[in-house]
Write a protein that binds this DNA or RNA. Structure first.
Lengths: 167, 167
DNA sequence: ATAAACTTTCAATAATTATTGAAAGTTTAG
DNA sequence: CTAAACTTTCAATAATTATTGAAAGTTTAT
């Protein structure tokens, strides 16, 4: 396999995985492209490489910046803006963990708490609803606290600990 | 908040979270409904409760069974089929962890391995592609082995260990 | 001040994904 | 055997989501 083919394979695979961590295809592909690029890329270059429109590129770059995994780079003497992504996979994972917790898990925890706190009217179905949503709340809460611990640890610390624990 | 409102809130919230673990809305809602039901439900009852068509219900129940989190229940004397979901959240988490590993992470690991194994032609960009995809492979591999460990542990073991580790 | 270089916005459109519903298929009872 | 009860399939359609492209907005150089 040659460079070009490998690169395309990587971008398309990692891109399609994007949906797994809750971002769309273009967003994931832009991040992938930056992730293996040896220098910051301009909007023009990104559009060209991925064959996507200017508007699409602009919007998705913005979202990536909102996620905290892409940053603008100002290159002296250049008028246009350049972009880079976090290159360290551990850091990348930390950012993503933190964002997913904030955007997805936290709001769900809130609802589960509300639902599991309804007044127990003594009927079997109410008891079941309370019991099950409580159990789900506790599970989600555990998962979330794990995720946040991951997000706040030093690089490698987590990986080392987990591997030791589970080896 | 009354039972009915709480139930609807739970189904719609947990349902919309479905996309997080890679299943569609109807599928997630059916699972939610079964999760808080005090008895197995027939297709008719599910259609009625969620206001979805027979075809939709049938297809999504099938998918839930493929995921291993819903099972057919045969009730003596009844002609129609009834369905239940795994009620234990730990078991549910184990099933989901296992399936996601198999369906999503494993295939990606394979591609990452292929891409990171291309011939090093000595150019900087090739070196970068190899380095970055290797790092991603290792991260994904760690995540996957963690997920699989979770999927194979005794109930509660994982939660307890993790809480101890991260308390 | 203004023109060139560049980015953002957003209504229109395209692409994708989910849902319906009715026909075909299957199972069971009599 | 066959009619009734039930489930599955799948082409058509609807709903949702992503993408485009051109106009509007912004910044910088002169």
């Amino acid at each position: 396999m040659e460079y070009k083919e490998a690169k395309e394979k990587f971008i398309s695979t990692w891109g399609s995985l994007g949906t797994l961590w809750g971002i769309n295809k273009a967003m994931a592909q832009i991040q992938s492209l930056l992730f293996i690029s040896i220098k910051p890329l301009s909007m023009e270059e990104i559009m060209e490489e991925l064959k996507i429109s200017r508007g699409n590129t602009s919007m998705n770059l913005r979202q990536l910046m909102d996620w905290g995994i892409v940053t603008k780079e100002l290159i002296p003497g250049e008028r246009k803006e350049f972009f880079t992504t976090e290159k360290d996979v551990q850091e990348l994972a930390r950012h993503i963990a933190k964002e997913r917790s904030r955007r997805e898990i936290k709001p769900v925890l809130k609802v589960l708490k509300e639902v599991s706190s309804i007044n127990d009217d003594g009927t079997e179905k109410t008891k079941e609803l309370i019991k099950q949503t409580k159990a789900l709340h506790d599970l989600a809460d555990t998962a979330d606290s794990l995720l946040n611990k991951v997000a706040n640890q030093e690089q490698n610390w987590v990986t080392k600990s987990l591997l030791k624990l589970f080896k």
